[in-house]
Computed example of a mutant assay.
Amino acid sequence: MEFTHTLALAILQGLTEFLPISSSAHLVLLPKFLGWEDQGVAFDVALHVGTLSAVIFYFRSELSKMTKDWFKSLVSFKLIGESRLAWAVLFGTIPVGLAGLMVHDIVDNARSTAVLAWSTIIFGLLLGYGDITGKRARNEYSLTWKDIVIIGIAQAVALIPGTSRSGITMTAGLMLGLTREGAARFSFLLSIPVIVLAGGLEGFGLLRHPEAVEWSALALGTLVSALVGYLCIHFFLKALQYMGMIPFMIYRLILGGIILWLL
């Protein structure tokens, strides 16, 4: 891969993995519009490793507490401290894990530009609706089991190309009354097992069908996507209280319209 291609895709992954604008749409569309060769499964796995590292490092303090309390809850058979949030992340991942196994091949075959365009528009409108109508009265620690199931199912919907995993989970959280920061933080925590599952699935496919590996491109892609992902999480959470989700809804409408126009 050329250096500029590696850099552009890594920056794009670091940004779009966490912003509610759909990483799948951008990573499919950029090479297609610019006429680049497919970056390959190995590079996709490397980018996922980068963004996984970013979210784990950013939430390292919370994850340490959640993990300790989760193990305590296993021993005591009751919720302790932040074990509830840890269980919420685990249970919220089940729907997308099951759906991914069942419809993985169908989703891969559905990556058309038309699907990306309409998903970008429709779920962008839902994001704006959730931001405008949501009560924004509670944080991620107040989630009920019903809330967790709803957000988990919403995350499974993100298998539709162009939906945005972060976007649909934030939308569900806002509609359930979470604050913008609470919805975003829970969405980011939910991304950890999802990225592990997605990267593991792609990695398994790579083992079955090995390809030539450009180690320098993989290393650069991992490093850049991790750095950009970390900065994206940091500044996005700080800016949310001032700007909300409307700018991202507008961006999605414009992007979807451009894709349809080009079609």
Score class of each variant (00 low, 15 high):
Arg84Pro: 02
Ile150Asp: 03
Ile233Tyr: 05
Leu190Glu: 01
Phe235Ile: 03
His209Val: 12
Ala54Glu: 00
Val115Arg: 09
Thr16Ser: 14
Val41Asn: 05
Leu237Trp: 11
Ile168Val: 15
Asn139Asp: 15
Leu178Asp: 01
Val103Ser: 05
Phe188Cys: 00
Val107Leu: 11
Ala226Met: 10
Leu237Cys: 07
Phe91Met: 13
Ala110Thr: 12
Arg185Gly: 04
Gly134Tyr: 05
Pro31Gly: 05
Gly40Thr: 02
Ile150Asn: 05
Ala183Glu: 01
Leu90Phe: 15
Pro247Asp: 04
Asp147Lys: 11
Gly35Phe: 09
Ser142Asn: 13
Ala25Leu: 06
Leu143Ser: 04
Leu231Tyr: 12
Leu189Glu: 05
Ala88Val: 09
Thr4Cys: 03
Gly40Lys: 02
Cys232Tyr: 04
Asp38Arg: 13
Ala239Val: 11
Ser119Leu: 06
Phe235Met: 02
Phe188Asp: 00
Leu189Met: 12
Tyr129Asp: 01
Gly162Asp: 04
Pro210Glu: 06
Leu240Trp: 10
Lys72Ile: 09
Gln241Glu: 15
Gln155Ile: 06
Asp38Pro: 12
Leu63Tyr: 09
Gly167Ile: 13
Val103Trp: 12
Val157Phe: 14
Ser142Ile: 04
Ala183Gly: 05
Ala217Phe: 04
Ile121Ser: 06
His234Leu: 14
Pro31Lys: 10
Phe59Ile: 00
Ile246Gly: 03
Leu227Val: 15
